[in-house]
Amino acid sequence: MKVFLSVDLEGVSGIVHATETRPDGYDYARARALMTAEANAAIAGVLDAEPAAEVLVADAHGPFRNLLPEELDRRAHLVRGKPRPLGMLGGLEADTDAALFIGYHARAGSGPAVLAHTMSGDVLDVRVAGRSLGETGLNAAMAGHLGVPVVLLSGDDVACAELRDLVPSARTVAVKQALGQTATVAPHPEEAQERLRRAAREAVARRSEVAPLALPGPLDVEADLLNPTALDLAELVPGVTRTGGRTVAFTAADTAEAYRLVLLLVQLATIRPA
């Protein structure tokens, strides 16, 4: 059995501010330690349910170099570094039996939610077939395209609701309650980790109850970008057109094509004029 974990940072219990999530920021060392501890809790839960499982953990935040390799459960393998195919899902393959999203946050515009955004602060919204999707939705759809169900998400209560709206049979564990963009109520980290371990165990044990998220193509995709230069650059991509002051659009043959083009737009959105 193969299980894949995509681990982000903003949804980890105790994390409330963007400075904590950046390598040059205040308390980043503590944040990455908490991130690693929650990853380990999820790994332990997976292996409680399936002791022989092959567990692959993808560092899925920012530079993709946040999890502490020497502190990660030695029974798992770590995907680290960027750029890489499938971004936050780097290493996910079609023969994977279940995916877990750990430390995830809500999509841009869904507040009050802790550190809500979609891929980057330069992306205001992504709509697929008319539906606004954040990282949870985009990643769940890409996993679903490969036939892999997302059986668990941890994060704040808003992020959890986001997955349940898309995949009602999936399990969620809220490791903090959102009070605003940079404020939460959270249990002690060890309590959050214990809840996560139990939830991961239950989610993997009941993985057959969760169907992969399917978005049949072709798919009409729109992205609202903050940086005007990004819109100029996006128009250079074949098939992408500007449809508004901040909006570009394209039609993708399937979810995989849509996902890769969104990842490209996210990178273009970070470019500033020379």
Rank of each mutant, 00 (worst) to 15 (best):
S154W: 04
V150Y: 03
P228Q: 02
A211R: 15
A252V: 03
R201N: 10
V175E: 08
E162I: 08
L152F: 00
D254W: 06
L179V: 08
P189C: 06
A203I: 03
L236R: 14
L219V: 01
Q181I: 09
A205T: 03
T251A: 04
D224K: 10
A256G: 05
S154R: 10
D232I: 01
S154T: 15
D224L: 11
D224S: 13
A186K: 09
A253M: 04
Y259A: 00
A205V: 00
S154V: 10
R207N: 01
G244M: 03
V204A: 04
R164C: 13
A183P: 05
T184A: 15
N227V: 11
V158W: 11
G217C: 07
E202T: 14
T184E: 15
L233W: 04
A161K: 12
L219F: 00
L219Y: 02
P187H: 00
A203D: 01
V185T: 15
T241W: 12
V237P: 03
V237E: 13
A174Y: 13
D220P: 09
R242S: 09
L226V: 07
T229E: 15
A258Q: 00
S208A: 15
Q177P: 10
V204E: 03
R171M: 14
G239W: 04
T184V: 15
L219T: 06
L231T: 04
P187V: 04
R195T: 06
G180D: 13
T255A: 11
D254M: 06
S169L: 14
A223I: 11
H145C: 08
D224I: 07
T241Y: 10
R246G: 07
P216W: 07
E222T: 13
Q181R: 15
A234T: 08
V173P: 10
V204N: 01
Y259Q: 06
A192P: 01
R197I: 06
D224M: 09
E194P: 00
T255L: 05
A234N: 04
A205E: 10
A192V: 04
V237S: 11
L153D: 14
E162D: 14
H188S: 06
P228M: 01
L153Q: 15
P212I: 01
K176M: 07
R260D: 12
V237G: 03
T251R: 12
L146Y: 03
F250P: 02
L233F: 04
L231C: 02
S208L: 13
G245Q: 03
C160W: 07
P187E: 02
H145D: 10
T243Q: 05
P228F: 00
Q177G: 15
R246P: 01
R198K: 11
D220E: 15
R260L: 12
G180Q: 11
A258P: 00
A214C: 08
G155M: 09
D254L: 02
E222P: 03
E222S: 10
V151W: 05
D220I: 06
L233Q: 03
D156E: 14
V240P: 07
A252F: 05
P238H: 00
A161P: 09
E222H: 08
D254F: 02
H188M: 01
N227W: 09
P238I: 02
G147Q: 02
